[in-house]
Write a protein that binds this DNA or RNA. Structure first.
Length: 181
DNA sequence: TACGTGATTACC
DNA sequence: GTAATCACGTAA
């Protein structure tokens, strides 16, 4: 039953730890290897190779616009693909996050995919690291988490109609409000 | 709203 | 070799 969509939904409310910092995931997006024109596997041979050669739970990290590292988790199961982690509510290591981000406002520390990697100190060295098994970062479900809200993904030019972005409704740490349709 | 910045890729 | 594209963030 495991698929990028299931995992993207399930990660909402989970705690993400990285090198002494931690936050609760409040925004994710699912990307599917097959039939999703926005997924890297659709236009990058290196991404297809990555899926073939790595286990589920491996971090897929890449540089976007030459500036921002984006943090994904590899999903393998009934369907293969990635979950892009897009925003966190900061919980632990706020001092270091503020220092790395050069921002004070708590909501602005991890409210975007590039912001959270900067806040946590994630970069290309994390690419290919097995997040689950090595517990370099750890994930643990939160109890009483309400159902995530689904809406369109952000910042893509292909497959814009798919509602594969998931958010914790009402969070103040989102990268952008959901578009109501 | 403009644009920096660099990896990846396709195509000479 | 060149050029296009890109799952973004910031200042203005």
């Amino acid at each position: 039953m495991r698929s990028p969509i299931d995992c993207a939904r399930g990660l909402i409310g989970c705690r993400l730890e990285w090198k002494g910092c931690a936050g609760v995931i409040v925004e994710t997006e699912a990307y599917e290897s097959e039939g999703d024109a926005a997924c890297h596997t659709h236009y990058r041979p290196s991404a297809r190779r990555f899926v073939a050669e790595h286990e589920a739970g491996t971090a897929y990290v890449y540089l976007n616009y030459g500036v921002h590292w984006l943090f994904n988790l590899l999903v393998k199961g009934e369907r293969n693909g990635f979950v892009l982690v897009r925003a966190l509510e900061p919980v632990e290591g706020l001092r270091r996050m503020r220092a790395r981000r050069k921002r004070k406002n708590t909501e602005a520390l991890c409210s975007g995919p590039g912001k959270l990697t900067q806040a946590l100190g994630i970069d290309g060295r994390a690419h290919g690291v097995d997040v689950i098994a090595f517990r370099h970062g750890a994930l643990a479900a939160t109890e009483g988490e309400p159902e995530p809200v689904a809406c369109r993904r952000i910042g893509i030019s292909k497959a814009q109609e798919l509602c594969w972005r998931y958010i914790r409704s009402g969070s103040r740490s989102l990268s952008a409000p959901p578009v109501i349709t």
